[in-house]
Amino acid sequence: MRIALFITCFNDTLYPGTGRAVVRLLERLGHTVEFPQAQTCCGQMHFNTGYRPEALPLVRGFTEAFAGYDAVVTPSASCAGMVRDNHAVVAEQYGDGELRRAVAGITPRVYELTELLVDVLGVTDVGAFFPHRVTYHPTCHSLRMIRLGDRPLRLLREVRGIDLVELPRADSCCGFGGTFALKNADTSTAMLADKMRGVLDTGAEVLCSADNSCLMHIGGGLSRLRTGVRTLHLAEILAATEGDPR
């Protein structure tokens, strides 16, 4: 199976450790991962902010970069959702027949990391070891856009040494919302405050999720208040082993 990693522009630039964790994890499970160098960005920010014509070349670039792979895996629920739900919308509105066909061909093969692990590769115990108190925030797009369900939790429960605690009002949005955090900074901060309160109530030392963008927002708040809680992408917990703890 040819698995291509779609790292996402955001992780590529700010969270390369998440990408390295995905590679380490999949290779440990016996798979080969390729990284198509032509990849850049799925166009989510442009699309969600209303700049659809600007998203068109990014949609086209995505289909070109990932043509020919059996599976495209991404450690971002919201980028997976953008590709699966909205690339077709952009192609329909601004693209040509060729692009529409290319989008339709590729989107069914795009998986968020936990989907690939649980549904395609059929594993929930990935042999991870992470002896910390952890709480999981299901991001809105992982929960309601691509519907990851309990896949992340099933993977986390199999991690050895982990003390997994439930996050209160976990399904409530953290307030990030991409450019929402800038356009509606006050509302975003109010939502962030409530999310942080929930995280702190758990006593967790690590907050994890399937999207680094929400984690940058929540983690940024937790860091500013010197709470001592760190944020980690789920992939980095799943990649950790006794011999390579991270």
């Binding site: 992780n11 969270y15 990408g19 962030l192 940058m216 983690g219 940024g220 500013r224």
Partner: peptide, 12 residues
């Protein structure tokens, strides 16, 4: 309201 991670020395 938030700290931001410094871009790492090496991208993915």
């Amino acid at each position: 309201a938030r700290d931001t991670p410094a871009p790492p020395a090496e991208s993915f």
